[in-house]
Nucleic acid binder design. Structure first.
Length: 803
RNA sequence: GCUGGUGUGGCGGAAUAGGUAGACGCAAGGGACUUAAAAUCCCUCGGGGGCAACCUCGUGCCGGUUCAAGUCCGGCCACCAGCACCA
C-alpha cells in the first residue's frame, strides 16, 4: 500500500527538480515550431498574491505545458509591472525607497508563484523599473516624439485630488479615480500627450485580423467610437464668420430649427458685443464651469441653456434665420463644439426644444407618433419630407445627396469623428520612467540623444508630490538644470514621469530577448516569437492596457521595428473570483482568501485544480472551501490509483472507447477555455477505474499525462514512482483515434411522438431498418394507432410518430 | 438609454451540429466500518403521483417553427458588465 499523499513533501521536491533540470527553459532553437503564451504580468503590490491571480496563470500554464508535450518550443514568461502609485505611497508613508519596496514585493510574489509550480522560464524575468528595461521604454517614447506623435499641450486634464496626479480619460471611472476612488476635477496643465487618435482607424481595422473574444473587440470599437457624418457651415447673420457643426444626420438639415454651442465655445467671447443678454450668458457659463464632466452628464435628465440674443445663424439650405443657444449638453471636446439642433429627430434636441418652446419640424416621415409627442430617430425606415430637393428619398440616399450638395457649394463636407481622445501621458510623480526630453528656451523641446539613454531616475530627498502639481523631481535643481543638447545653452529637464501603462505597452516584446542592450529585442527573436499566440488578461484592461499596447505595437510596426502589425493573435479574458458570499473579495468585507493558506493546507495542485474546476473560465465565480476539499479528494483518489495498477501495455477492451473519448475531450477543452469540463472528464474516467478496481499501466500512463498540465506535482511523483521513463514534463501528449471513441455497442433512445419511452442496445453501425424494428419491439405497448413517420438518427435515437 | 452577456436542482455548474436535460463536483439524507468521531466505501438525491414496473410536470415568462426545442424564431421580464448628452 502506498503512503498517504503528502503535498508538503511532493510539491517542493518537484519544484526543485524542475529548477535544477531547467525543465521549462525556452530554447533559442528558432527552427522548432514556437508557441508564445502570455498572461498579464502583475503589479507587485504589498498585499502579495491574491487568489484571483492563479486563475489566468494556471489556465495558460496548462496550455503551455500541453504545448511542450506536443513538441513546441514554448515561451511562457513572467515579469513585474513595478512602477506605480501604491509603491510610491507606501514608500512615502514608511520612508523607504520605492526601489527597496519593489524589491521586497517582487521577492514575495516570486516565491508565491514558485510555490504554485508554474512553468515560467524565470531566466527571462523582466522588471519595468530596471534601467536596462526602461531604457527601451524611453527609446520608444523618443520614436513617438520624433514621429510627431508625442506633443505637449496646455489642456484641461483629469486631476485626481488624492493622488495629486493627472489621469487619462480611461482612468476615470464614474467621475472618480480608477485607483483610489477620490473625486476627479478638471485642471489646466501642460501635459505630454500621445496621438493615439491618429491610430484610431488602424486600431479598428486591426481587430478584423485577430481572434479576440467578441465582447473585447466590441468594447474596443465602442471606446474608439467611430462615427460618419458631415461638417456643415452655418453663416452668422450679418457677420463674416461661419459656425461649423458636426452631424451624423446631414439628411435632417432642413429640420434644424436652432443651434447650440458649448458654453466654452470661443465665439461667445468673440461676439460679446453683439450679445444683448451678456450677464445671463456669463452667469450660465460660470455655473457650467463649476460642474465636472461627470456632474454634467449626471444632470443630463434636465436640460438647461441660455439663448444668445442678438446672434443668429442662417440655415444654408433654406436661408432661414434660426436662434443660437448655449447649453452644457454640447461638449467642446467632441466635433466642433457646436451642433445644429433637429428636435424632430434627436432625443436630446427634442427635450431641449420642448423645454424652451422651440419649433419642431418633421423632415423624415414614417414616425409612429407625431413628432410633437416624441422624436423619431429610426434611420432604417422613413422617407424625407419638408426637405426641398431631398423629398421622397430614403435616409441613406438623402445623406449622400445632401453631402454632395454641401461639397459642391463648399459649405460642408463628409467627416469622420471618434470618441477616442489623445492619451494624457504625463504623471507628476517620482516612481515612473523619466521622460527623456529637455526644454530649451531657444530650441523648444529637445529629445535626448539615443546614446544618452537610459535616463535614470535620480535619488531625491522626498517622493512627496507637491500641491502645485509638480513632480518631486522638479525640486532637484542639479538634475533639472542641464545644457541643451542642441545649442548648449541653459535648459531644463522634463520633470514629469510616464504613466504606469508605458512599461506594460511593450513588455511582451522584451521577453523574446530580455537582456539585449543594443535593441529592445533582436530582429530574429521578434520575427520568430511574434505575435503572441495567446494572451489572457482581465476585462478591466480592454480600453486601457490592451488598447495602449496595440497602439504602440502598431506604431513600432509602422517604424519597421516589429515584424507584425498586431501584437496578440488571440485574446481571452477570465472572470473574477469572488468571496464565499458572492461579493468581491476585499479586506473590509473580510472575505479575502490567501492563496498561501490554500497551498499550505491543501497543496498547489489542489488550488490549481480547484480554480480550473470552479466554473466557466470567462465568468465570475464564488470561492468555496468545500469545493477546494472536493478537488483535494479527487487528487487523493488519483494518488491511491497507484495500488490498482496492473500490467498491461494496452487499454483494456471495456475502457478503450472511454480512454479515447477522454483524450479527445481533454485535448479539446484545454484549447477552448473549458477547463472545468476537462477536469470533469478526468474525474469521470477515474470513477470508471475505481468501479473496476484496476487500471492497466497504459491507462494509468495516459491518465497521468492528461492530468499533468493541471496538477503537475502529483503526476510527476506518480510517474516516477511507477517507473515510467523520464519525466512527464518532457513526455509526449497522448493521441486518440476518432474511430475508437465510439463504443461497439451503443445505447439508442426510443421516442414515441418525441417522448422517451425506452432505450435499446445496438451495434454502433446498426442500420435504420434494424434499429426501427428493435425500437418498435421495445416500445410496443406505447405504439397505439397508425405509425405515420419513423425517424432514425444514427448513434442517437429512433422516433416513432403515431396518429 | 445604448452595446455585449447571462437566466437550468438546495449550491457551483454540464449538455459538439435541434436528438435520452441535470455530466462532474459540493451540500444533504440513509447505510457499512469504528467503543466513538474523522477519514473512507456503498445507496438515495428536480417537483407531484404510485408498493412497483411506470406515469406526469419541469431549463426566467408568453407565443411560434419542428417528428423532436435548454438549444431556432417573435414578443416580454430579471440580473451582470461596459459605455453613457459623443450630435
Amino acid at each position: 500500500m502506498a503512503e498517504l499523499y503528502n503535498h508538503h513533501e511532493v510539491e517542493p521536491k518537484w519544484q526543485k527538480i524542475w529548477d535544477d533540470e531547467k525543465a521549462f527553459k525556452t530554447s533559442d532553437d528558432f527552427s522548432k515550431p514556437k508557441y508564445y503564451a502570455l498572461v498579464e504580468f502583475p503589479y507587485p503590490s504589498g498585499q502579495g498574491l491574491h487568489v484571483g491571480h492563479p486563475r489566468p496563470y494556471t489556465a495558460l500554464d496548462i496550455v503551455a505545458r500541453k504545448r511542450r508535450l506536443q513538441g513546441y518550443n514554448v515561451l511562457y514568461p513572467m515579469g513585474w509591472d513595478a512602477f506605480g502609485l501604491p509603491t510610491e505611497n507606501y514608500a512615502i508613508k514608511n520612508k523607504i525607497h520605492p526601489r527597496i519596496v519593489t524589491k521586497n514585493n517582487v521577492a514575495r510574489f516570486k516565491a508565491q508563484l514558485h510555490s504554485l509550480g508554474y512553468s515560467f522560464d524565470w531566466d527571462r524575468e523582466i522588471n519595468t523599473t530596471d534601467p536596462g528595461y526602461y531604457h527601451w521604454t524611453q527609446w520608444i517614447f523618443l520614436k513617438l516624439f520624433n514621429a510627431g506623435l508625442a506633443y505637449k499641450s496646455e489642456m484641461p486634464i483629469n486631476w485626481c485630488t488624492s493622488c495629486k496626479v493627472g489621469l487619462a480619460n480611461e482612468e476615470v471611472v464614474n467621475g472618480v479615480c480608477e485607483r483610489c476612488g477620490s473625486p476627479v476635477v478638471r485642471k489646466v496643465k501642460s501635459q505630454w500627450m500621445l496621438k493615439i487618435t491618429e491610430y484610431a482607424d488602424k486600431l479598428i481595422e486591426g481587430l478584423d485580423s485577430v481572434d479576440y473574444v467578441e465582447r473585447i473587440a466590441t468594447q474596443q470599437k465602442n471606446w474608439i467610437g467611430k462615427s460618419r457624418g458631415a461638417e456643415v457651415d452655418f453663416t452668422l447673420a450679418g457677420k463674416e464668420d461661419k459656425l461649423t457643426v458636426y452631424t451624423t444626420r446631414p439628411d435632417t438639415l432642413f429640420g434644424a430649427t436652432y443651434m447650440v454651442m458649448s458654453p466654452e465655445h470661443p465665439y461667445i467671447d468673440k461676439y460679446k458685443d453683439a450679445i444683448s443678454n451678456w450677464d445671463e450668458v456669463v452667469a450660465y457659463r460660470e455655473e457650467a464651469a463649476k460642474k465636472s464632466d461627470f456632474e454634467r452628464s449626471e444632470l443630463a435628465k434636465d436640460k438647461t441653456g441660455v439663448e444668445l440674443k442678438g446672434l443668429r445663424a442662417v440655415n444654408p439650405v433654406n436661408d432661414t434665420e434660426i436662434p443660437i443657444w448655449i447649453s452644457d449638453y454640447v461638449l467642446m471636446s467632441y466635433g466642433t463644439g457646436a451642433i445644429m439642433a433637429v428636435p424632430a429627430h434627436d432625443d436630446r434636441d427634442w427635450e431641449f426644444a420642448k423645454k424652451f418652446g422651440l419649433p419642431i419640424i418633421e423632415v423624415v416621415g414614417g414616425s409612429p407618433v407625431p413628432v410633437t409627442e416624441a422624436a423619431f430617430t429610426v434611420v432604417a425606415t422613413g422617407t424625407l419630407v419638408n426637405s426641398g430637393f431631398l423629398n421622397g428619398l430614403s435616409v441613406a440616399e438623402a445623406k449622400e445627396k445632401i453631402t454632395e450638395f454641401l461639397e459642391s457649394r463648399k459649405i460642408g463636407h463628409a467627416k469622420v469623428n471618434y470618441k477616442l481622445r489623445d492619451w494624457v501621458f504625463s504623471r507628476q510623480r517620482y516612481w515612473g520612467e523619466p521622460i527623456p526630453i529637455i526644454h530649451c528656451d531657444c530650441c523648444g523641446y529637445v529629445p535626448l540623444k539615443e546614446e544618452d539613454l537610459p535616463l535614470e531616475l535620480p535619488e531625491v530627498d522626498s517622493y512627496m508630490p507637491t500641491d502645485n502639481g509638480e513632480s518631486p523631481l522638479a525640486a532637484m535643481d542639479s538634475w533639472v538644470n542641464v545644457k541643451c543638447p542642441k545649442c548648449g545653452g541653459p535648459a531644463k529637464r522634463e520633470t514629469d514621469t510616464m504613466p504606469q501603462w508605458a512599461g506594460s505597452s511593450w513588455y511582451f516584446l522584451r521577453y523574446t530577448d530580455p537582456t539585449n542592450d543594443k535593441a529592445l529585442a533582436s530582429k530574429e527573436a521578434l520575427k520568430y516569437w511574434m505575435p503572441v499566440d495567446w494572451y489572457n488578461g482581465g476585462m478591466e484592461h480592454t480600453t486601457l492596457h490592451l488598447l495602449y499596447s496595440r497602439f504602440w505595437h502598431r506604431f513600432l510596426y509602422d517604424q519597421g521595428v516589429v515584424p507584425c502589425p498586431e501584437p496578440y493573435a488571440k485574446r481571452t479574458s477570465h472572470g473574477m473570483i469572488l468571496g464565499e458570499n458572492g461579493e468581491k473579495m476585499s479586506k473590509s468585507r473580510g472575505n479575502v482568501v490567501n492563496p498561501d493558506d490554500i497551498v499550505r493546507d491543501y497543496g498547489a495542485d489542489t488550488l490549481r485544480t480547484y480554480e480550473m474546476f470552479i466554473g466557466a473560465f470567462d465568468q465570475a465565480a464564488s470561492w468555496s472551501e468545500d469545493g477546494v476539499k472536493g478537488c483535494r479528494r479527487f487528487l487523493e483518489r488519483v494518488w491511491k490509483l497507484q495500488d490498482m495498477v496492473t500490467d498491461g501495455d494496452t487499454y483494456s477492451a471495456d475502457l478503450e472507447a472511454k480512454m479515447h473519448q477522454t483524450i479527445k475531450k481533454v485535448s479539446g477543452d484545454f484549447e477552448t477555455l473549458k477547463y472545468n469540463t476537462a477536469i470533469a472528464a478526468l474525474m469521470s474516467l477515474i470513477n470508471e477505474f475505481y468501479k473496476k478496481g484496476s487500471v492497466t499501466k497504459a491507462e494509468y500512463r495516459t491518465f497521468l499525462l492528461l492530468l499533468n498540465p493541471v496538477a503537475p506535482h502529483i503526476t510527476e511523483e506518480l510517474w516516477s514512482l511507477s517507473g515510467f521513463e523520464g519525466r512527464v514534463y518532457n513526455a509526449q501528449w497522448p493521441e486518440y483515434s476518432e474511430e475508437k471513441t465510439i463504443e461497439d455497442t451503443i445505447t439508442l433512445a426510443v421516442q414515441v411522438n418525441g417522448k422517451l419511452r425506452a432505450t435499446i442496445q445496438a451495434p454502433k453501425d446498426v442500420d435504420k431498418d434494424t434499429a426501427i424494428a428493435l425500437a418498435k419491439e421495445a416500445a410496443a405497448e406505447k405504439i397505439t394507432g397508425t405509425v405515420v413517420k419513423e425517424i432514425f438518427v444514427p448513434g442517437r435515437l429512433v422516433n416513432i410518430v403515431v396518429k
